[in-house]
Design a protein around this nucleic acid. Structure first.
Length: 189
DNA sequence: AAAGAGATGGTCT
DNA sequence: GACCATCTCTTTT
């Protein structure tokens, strides 16, 4: 279970996205540790009309223009949080949205944070996985590689899928056709 | 099974 | 004041 070096994240978001599949996302928040395997992601960059960075740097999006392997967390529709991994070199506004996980550890914590939901719906959406891991804007801008970081990404040696499902993007109204959503094939998820 | 709508607040014009 | 990188509940086929 090794962290990945920052260099590993310093690529185009569309290139980083499929490589994040099958990596482990771990959080230790509120004294409870939760781990999930990343099974769906979506890339965004500053040339993308649907991206927060399309309009250039602002107070909200500036972490996306910063150093790779940091966390960009924003509030969606006033209710849910969404978590992204910053990609690319400093100065480019790129990140990969984490869209779905498969629970690996801390299932009781996940269930309590998503109380009343069937297991199938614990972490199958960007807002849901943030709730399950206890991620909110207090961890926005966090360095995934900092020592004792409450949120980390780990490589347990599982290779990313050789044939990820590439599909249309979701939840946006512009540039829906850009095939920048990647998912672990159904049999593996 | 699918479609529709409300919740709710930060961000930007 | 409009617009959301969503989720859940309700209503309709």
């Amino acid at each position: 279970m090794d962290p990945l070096p920052r260099r590993w994240y310093e690529t185009e978001a569309a290139e980083l996205a499929p490589r994040l599949l099958d990596k482990l996302l771990a959080s230790t928040i509120g004294g409870r540790r939760v781990v999930g395997r990343i099974i769906e992601v979506e890339a965004y960059d500053e040339s993308d009309p649907a991206s927060h960075t399309f309009i250039g740097p602002t107070a909200r999006n500036n972490v996306m223009f910063g150093s790779a392997a940091h966390l960009y967390v924003y509030l969606s529709y006033g209710i849910h949080h969404c978590a992204n991994v910053v990609a690319g070199p400093v100065g480019r506004g790129q990140a990969v949205l984490l869209r779905a996980l498969r629970p690996i550890d801390g299932l009781e914590t996940i269930r309590s944070r998503r109380s009343g939901r069937p297991d199938r719906e614990l972490t199958d959406g960007p807002g849901k996985l943030c709730a399950a891991l206890g991620i909110d804007r207090s961890v926005n801008g966090l360095d995934l590689l900092a020592t004792n970081s409450p949120v980390t990404i780990l490589d347990d040696g599982t290779a990313p899928p050789t044939n990820p499902v590439v599909g249309p993007r979701i939840g946006i109204s512009k540039a829906v056709d850009t095939p920048w959503r990647f998912r672990v094939p159904p049999n593996k998820s």
